[in-house]
């Protein structure tokens, strides 16, 4: 979702196409959080950056086009008139570092979530076999199935697990 939101910000997807995205985020904020976390895991697993590939380049171009604001402290340390260019350069240099740091932070957080979810060996072990024991069909899935794909008897007969 972060990727899509950033794509949305970069005008890479039309607002109309993102309608469902916004609707789902507005509908339920814990769900939105979980979903964005999920997207993040996907991004990390695919090795694609969370932000769009040219996000950094665009941001840098924007920064370059912005007038450089010199802090009083910096000018106090370098009072000479010819120092303006040097200031501008070191200013954007520190910007690069902070961007790199935030990229790293995103990656670390993503990796931690990934470790917690995917790296758990018990999960991998459970992939191997499906228990053949029969169990009651979980009501939430049965209800969801019947509400979108009702069988002809389900209009009149509800599953026994249905709670009144």
């Amino acid at each position: 979702m972060t990727e899509q939101l950033s794509a949305l910000a970069d005008n890479e997807i039309k607002l109309a196409d993102a309608e469902h995205l916004l609707a789902s985020m507005q509908a339920n904020s814990p769900a939105a959080e979980a979903w964005s976390r999920y997207q993040l895991i996907g991004d990390v697993m695919r090795g694609t950056p969370t932000l769009s590939p040219d996000f950094k380049a665009k941001l840098m171009a924007k920064i370059d086009s912005e007038p450089t604001v010199l802090s009083p402290n910096a000018s106090w340390f370098k009072p000479s008139l010819g120092a303006d260019n040097v200031e501008a350069k070191s200013g954007s240099q520190s910007m690069v570092w902070s961007i790199a740091a935030s990229f790293a932070a995103i990656f670390v957080v993503g990796f931690m979530v990934l470790q917690a979810q995917v790296g758990d060996p018990s999960l991998n072990a459970s992939v191997a076999s499906v228990e053949t024991t029969t169990q009651a069909i979980p009501a939430e899935y049965l209800m969801a199935h019947q509400s979108s794909a009702p069988s002809s008897s389900s209009y009149y007969i509800q599953p026994a697990s249905y709670t009144h």
Binding site: L123, V130, E131, Q135, Y141, L142
Partner: peptide, 13 residues
């Protein structure tokens, strides 16, 4: 994680 299968009446899971 849920792993399993069942058959109740005409419905399979």
């Amino acid at each position: 994680p849920r792993n399993g299968r069942s058959l109740v009446g005409n419905t399979s899971f």
